[in-house]
């Protein structure tokens, strides 16, 4: 398939990026090349094959229903943010 400028803008939107025009140009070519490469999977017959999403021999792992103390407390976590006010993380206005 052909990747158009609006496809890149849409994907950037899904990915939360604000791309410059130059970046959109470069990514159009890169993504086109990558999609062409991964499309070779079309050659592979996967009729009636079940998908595999993980290779861990998964079984339910149970633990007692008890509160486990976390290593990092609220104060330690709040030191990681750039802006803090009144014991909360501060961000610009939402709307």
């Amino acid at each position: 398939m052909d990747i158009k400028r609006e496809d890149i803008v849409h994907l950037a939107d899904l990915s939360n990026f604000s791309l410059s025009d130059a970046e959109i140009g470069n990514l159009s070519k890169n993504l086109q090349d990558i999609i062409k490469y991964i499309s070779q999977l079309d050659e592979l017959n996967t009729d009636s094959v079940e998908p595999t999403y993980q290779v861990f021999e998964m079984e339910n792992v149970w633990r007692d229903d008890e509160i486990v103390e976390q290593e990092a407390n609220r104060e330690a976590l709040l030191t990681l943010t750039k802006e803090e006010k009144d014991n909360q993380i501060k961000v610009p206005k939402v709307l």
Partner: peptide, 21 residues
């Protein structure tokens, strides 16, 4: 948007966008 755009390398962006595609 600004943080992710400035903070990720080109290859990170390519992979995120291919993943979302």
């Amino acid at each position: 948007e600004n943080t992710r755009n400035e903070g990720f390398m080109s290859e990170n962006k390519r992979r995120i966008m291919i993943g979302n595609f």
